[in-house]
Structures are given as structure tokens and as C-alpha cells.
Design a binder for these strands. Sequence first.
DNA 1: CATGAATGAGACTTCATTCAT
DNA 2: GATGAATGAAGTCTCATTCAT
Lengths: 239, 239, 239, 239
Amino acid sequence: MSGQSKMKARNEQVLKAAERVFASNGFHESTVSEIAKEARVSEGTVYEYFSSKEGLLFSIPEAFVAKVREQNRFHLQLIRGAANRLRAILYLYLYTWQENPDYAVINLLILKGNLNFRKTEGYRLIREGFKEITHIIEEGITSGEFRADLDPYVIRSVLMGAVDHVSTNWLLSDRKHNLVDLVDPIMDLVMTGLGCQAPLAAGSRPPWDRWPSREGRTSSFGRAQEGDTPQAPPQTEND
Amino acid sequence: MSGQSKMKARNEQVLKAAERVFASNGFHESTVSEIAKEARVSEGTVYEYFSSKEGLLFSIPEAFVAKVREQNRFHLQLIRGAANRLRAILYLYLYTWQENPDYAVINLLILKGNLNFRKTEGYRLIREGFKEITHIIEEGITSGEFRADLDPYVIRSVLMGAVDHVSTNWLLSDRKHNLVDLVDPIMDLVMTGLGCQAPLAAGSRPPWDRWPSREGRTSSFGRAQEGDTPQAPPQTEND
Amino acid sequence: MSGQSKMKARNEQVLKAAERVFASNGFHESTVSEIAKEARVSEGTVYEYFSSKEGLLFSIPEAFVAKVREQNRFHLQLIRGAANRLRAILYLYLYTWQENPDYAVINLLILKGNLNFRKTEGYRLIREGFKEITHIIEEGITSGEFRADLDPYVIRSVLMGAVDHVSTNWLLSDRKHNLVDLVDPIMDLVMTGLGCQAPLAAGSRPPWDRWPSREGRTSSFGRAQEGDTPQAPPQTEND
Amino acid sequence: MSGQSKMKARNEQVLKAAERVFASNGFHESTVSEIAKEARVSEGTVYEYFSSKEGLLFSIPEAFVAKVREQNRFHLQLIRGAANRLRAILYLYLYTWQENPDYAVINLLILKGNLNFRKTEGYRLIREGFKEITHIIEEGITSGEFRADLDPYVIRSVLMGAVDHVSTNWLLSDRKHNLVDLVDPIMDLVMTGLGCQAPLAAGSRPPWDRWPSREGRTSSFGRAQEGDTPQAPPQTEND
DNA sequence: CATGAATGAGACTTCATTCAT
DNA sequence: GATGAATGAAGTCTCATTCAT
């Protein structure tokens, strides 16, 4: 009991400290002694709970994903419609990064360059989350909600790429603006498309094939309508 | 003369060796001695040309961007139309990563987690490239080619996020498939949108608000037509 | 009672576990935690019974010698004649090593390099056994059973050196052959000598007998003569 | 040139320092920093020349054997007769230990308990030296110089066991007496035997003589006397 | 200008020992 | 008395950087 729960608490304590330290300084720039100090334990204790510094790093996503996964699954069960669910997923991702910026740094910046991470359970879990997104996209295509002429992988890449991109920018910025405010603009863009909804004539030419030649494309009408889905563009961002 | 050009050659030699070694093993896992060996020079020589191991790392994008930039600028000058130019940019990015996978690894995986990189000239150059993309998007909006109700930053994030995403996946895969094949699917999605092109009635409802409830939205006509814009979905990818 | 005997059992339990673990891995390569696990007790318990890891190591010969000594003394009382008794001693040694190979490893391999061991009671007991061998040899000389012109120390060294040598080799081998089978060959050699028992005429003394200058072969062990100061090749073990 | 010879000198310098330090304190009780200090180099330099602390230890016999071997081979070529050559070998061994006590400690005390040593080149070289001894013994048997009814391995074990034994004792003693003085007594004992060369009456063969079956071997009259001076079990060293 | 041997700071990690429970 | 989590000292080893040649 007490022993068990105490050890669990210690584990969490070290894990959280590591998250903070790694996020602040990067993996190689952090020392185990620093983490131990942050966790208010001795260096040796860190090694009682984690096999190595890198093992500690890899335990962070493992623990995190395990924790977040269930609640996300729950949320998604409440939602119908592929587009709605994709939107929810985007929201959950951005919300999670926003509320857990230290973990976000580890996930988006630190683990990205680590080759060994790709052999870990944490990585497997993350990939699984990606697969579920693909499933939803496929359902959307099957149900006719989405176009069927696009590879689900491309769709997912565009969505998750956008999430990664804006999250990374946000992390590296002053983090003042609201990350989740970008959910709707992104969804809007991806669902409706960037092109002006001109009275599409000959429906079958590949879309991008039309843009270049602009002759005939009137000045459009799809201008910015005030009021809809306001933007929260990171100003000071890296652009 | 000879001295100048010889030094330039040596510089390039070390730079290329560093690119290979860093890309293979990561930054911290690579040693200066390894790089020197790969470059067929002594360790001391590395320090004659670069101030430090990290300075060497940061010199890689600097040199690379300087080299690629001009030709890209040239290509873009030949192209009219914002959409066309965005497509060209995507193409140039994916093509560049595909042809320079070592540099791609450094740019997309290694430098991402390096805090000091953000203070360097190389980083500034990369950001500049991003700004130009934003400019093109703004021009597209101004010219009426693009919708005006979307933040250019969001648009750019979606595009470049997609580029990063598929490139990263490709790098971590067996690199068998053609990365540039993804240009058109991505552009298609971003320009036309994922939603089925129903006869958009009341133009003002927020787009994403329409998807969930699909009633009224006819089954669409924009189905997958074989033949157009072939996909090259990464097989072994992380999804 | 119960407390006493239980403690004694625990003591033995830890001692035996330590013997196994030390013999398998060596002293420094073994950990207290390993020993505790092998003994099915906690690490703390090990320290209830032994002052330190090294103290535990030193307790092994102490306990072992105490145990074996009495029975050996009993056996020897049954035997008459110095040669017979020496043979019995050799037999007991080899038999003991053969039946207790873990202890043999500790005695012959591990404790040998330990400087502190020489200050312990266990060491004193072992030396005592050696002294008794010397006594028997001296008695053999006195009684005329043995030659009188050899230093008992040399005789003992040859005997016990042989025992150590063959035992060590056996321990490091597959331990398939019978160690005690070597008792008689060794005794035979030491008692009778390696030289061919020709009817040694005056002039035909074995060549080696002449070098040192063994005029008369009177008592005492032959002095070192002229200096040839040749080198000796390093080596040790089992061929 | 200079670079080569300087490095060779450094190598030797570190090797010698390690020999001294290991011999004084034992392997595990010595630290690399200590060795570096003794060698007047930095810790890092030790690792420039030797892969690890244990690698350094194992390099000691390797270098030593290589050095001593040739001269010993030369000495032995000058000597005829198996007994003479055995004597020379004993002499060379004892002389070497006496003149190189630090190395002797490493060989006889430290490396003995090291399991990894048995996989090294140094160990192989040492074993080779042993094989040569066996060869000489076999030649002696073939030539009729030695008895043919004894296993050469036993003979070698008795000889080398004696060498090890007296050397070890000497090392652990004050090292005041001359080690090489023991060569002749040992040879004498091993060649002539311990038993008294009396005109052995028929029935009175020494008891020990009967076990092996040494028909025809007379000798001795000396019976076992009083005193049973009981035996002590295991142990090893210099009484 | 080039070399590569030398440096030494500092990281990770182990493990004997202690002590609160 | 027994436990085993916690400790922290100490050790091995790496490697970026320097500098005499």
C-alpha cells in the first residue's frame, strides 16, 4: 500500500522533474543531477526508478500517452461525423500541447531527432494515435463526407503537419496566444479549400491545374466575411 | 588564389563530411574525430575552419540555404499566379529534401531541438524563406485568387506543416517512394478542400459547421477519378 | 533457542549464498543485492549478520575451515607414518576442493589477491593448517622416513604447490576429471623422484644433481651458486 | 619517428605506472586517476593508449611476456638435457619474479582471479610457456632421463606449483631472502624424491609406495611415528 | 596551415551501506 | 529482527578543444 503508492508518487515526481528539465534545456544539455535536484531526490534514486537517462526520457511519452489516451477516446465517442471528429482531434492535440507545453517540447522537438525513440513503446503508442486518425478519414470517405480522390495519408499529413507546425511555432514563441484558436481556421482551410469557390465550370480538370491560368477567374466573391472563425495568428512567430 | 580556392574546397569538404556524419548519427552522437576522419583531415583542421562542433553544425544550413536560394528564386520568377507559385515552392522543398536527404535530416530532425540554432544566421535565412511564402499567399489573397477570410499564417502552416510531415516520414522510412509525387495531392487538398463540393447554398455559415450534419449535402460528384494526381503513399510510414 | 537456531540458520543461508555468488562472479563483480536475492533475504538482513561485504567474504573461509578441520583431524589420527599422513592430507585437500568447488574458487582464486584477508582469523586458521603439514614433515625427517637434507619448507611448498596448481587448473577446466586421482601420482613423484632409479653409481648421478655443486649432498638446501641470472618467462596456469 | 618513439615511450610509461599501482593496491582498489598521476600523464591519456582499465591490466602480461620470452628461449637453447633445462626454467621463473616483483604480484595474485583474463592474448602466451615445459618433460621421458610412469602434466604441476607457491610466499613476505636459492632444493626433491635412498629391505617398502604400484621400488624404512599433528583443511599461503 | 597527441572537465552510472517503517 | 527504498560518494570513460611540432 503505502510502499506501492509512495513509489508511484516518486516515479511521477521524477518523471515530472525530468519533463521540466528536458523541456528547458534539451536532452543532452540536461544532467541527471539536475533532474534529481529538481525532483528533490538523490541521483541514485533516479536510477532506482529508471534504467538510464535515456530510458527516463522515453518513459515520459509512455506515461503521458497512457494518461491522455483514455479521456480522448471518451471525448471522441461522443462525436458523430468524420469532419467533426477530425476537428475534435485537432482540438485535443492543440489543447494538450497548450496545457502541457513541457511535454509538447519533448514530443515535438526533442524526441523527433532521437533514433532510439522509434524502438520504444511510447513511439508505438503515438503511432497508434495516428492510425486512428487515418481510420476516421477513411470512414469519412466511405460515408461520402469527404472526397474520395485523395489519399487518406495525404489528408492526415496535412492535418497533423499543420498541428505540429503551429504547435512548434507556438512553443518557440512567447506562448501568449491561444493555440486552440487555430483549430477552426485549419479545419476551414482543409475542408473548404483555399481556392475561391468560383462557379466551377468543367468539373473534371485537376483543380490545381486551373489556378495557374487565371484568365477567366473573376475576382471572386469569397472574400473575408467578417465574423467567421476569428484568427489568432501568432504574430511574433517564426515565419 | 590557389590558397583561397583550396581553403574554400577544404571548407566544403568538412561541411559535407559533417552533414553526412550528423545525419547518420545525430549531433551529440557524432564526434569531431569522426567528422575529421570522414573529411580526411585532422581534428585540428576542423577547428581551423569552424569555431566549434556546434558552429560547424550551424554552418551547414547557412551554406546550404545560400546555395539553394538563388536557383529557387530564379525558378519562381518564371511562374505566375499565387497557386502556381505555392505549388512550385512545395515542389522545390520536397525536391530539395529528396535530393539532399542528409541535409533534410539535419534541418528537419536535428536542428529542430537545438535552442541555440534560433540565434544563428542560418535560422534567419530559413525564416526568410518562410516570409516569402507568406508574401505569395498575401498576393494570392489580394489578387482574389485565394479566399480572403483565412489568415495567411494558417495557410502557410498547413502547407509547410504538410511538407515537413511527409518529408520527415519519408526520411524515417526506406525512402523508396517519390517525395515529389505528394506535391499535387497536397496542393489539391489545400486548394479545393476535403469537403464534397456540394452546391454551396447560403455562403456564410462557417464551413466546418456544415460537415457534421450531412443532410442536404448530396453525395457529391467529386469522386476519385482514377488517373489524376497519382498518390505515392508512404508504405512503411509512421502512421 | 528458536531465536538462536534461526539466526544460525540465517547466517549459514547468507554465507552459502555468498559463496555461490562470489564463486560465480568474483568478489567485486558480485553485489550485495545479488547475494541477498540468492539467500532469499533482504539486503538489510545481510548487514545484520555481517559487518560488510568484505567481512562476509572473509567469514566464508572462517566458517568453512572451522567445519572441515575437526573431521580432518579425526581422519589423520587414524593414520601412521609421515608419508601416509602427507598423502592423507593431499587427499583431504583435493577431496575438499572437489566437493566444494565454490569454496575452492574463493580460497584459491579470490582471496589470493586480497590484501586485507591476511589480517583475518580465516587466514590465520589456514596458515595453521600449513604449519601442521610442516610438523609432519619434520617428524618424518626425525624418524628417518624422509631425507634429512631438505628444508621442510621446500617439501611443503612442493606438495602444497602441486595441490594448488592442479586444483586451480581443475576449477578453471570443465571439472570433468577426478581431482583426487592425482593424489598418488603426486605422492609418487615427490617421494620417489623423477630421476630414473638406476643403480646410481658414483659417477652417474643425475646431471642436474651436479650443477649446483652438490658436493657430498650434505644437509641443507643447496645454495645459489654462480650467477646465471637468466630470465624467467611469465606464466601460470592450466596448459 | 619522434612521434612513434614518443608514443612508445608513453605507452611504456603508463604500463609501468599501472604495474606499480596495481601491484601495490590490487586491481579494484586502484583508480585510473592514481595510475595517471603515477605516470605523470592525464587521465585521458591513459585512455588514449589503453581501451579500459581492465585492458590496461591485461596489457601488462602481454608486454612483459613478449619482452622476456625471447631471451629465455635463447638461454634454453644453450642447455642440454631435460633435467638441466627444467632447472633452468625454474631458475628463470624465480629470477624473473624476484627481479620484477610488481609484475609477479600481478601475475600470481591479481590475474589469477580474473575470469576475463583467460580470453586474452597475454593468457595465451603464458599457457604457451607451460606447453613448452611439458614438451621438455616429454623429451626427458623419451630419452630415458625421466621415469616414464608419470604423467607429464603431474610433473609439470609439481614443478610449477612449487614455483608459484614459493614465489607467492616470497611476495607476501618481506622479500628478504633470495628466491632463486630455492631452485636447487626444489629440483633436488623432485628429481631424487623425498624418500630415503636406503638399501630398502624387501618387506619394508614405504606405505605410500605401494598404492601407485611401484614394484621394484625399494627404499625407506622410516615409519610413521608418534604425533598425529592433525590436519587443517584448505588454505594456501606462506605460513 | 596542418596535425593529432594531450588534456581535463564532467557525465553517467553503480552499489555498499543506512535507517525509517 | 527484517525490509528495501534511499542515499551519495566515487569511479570509469568520453570527447571537445588546444597547442607544440
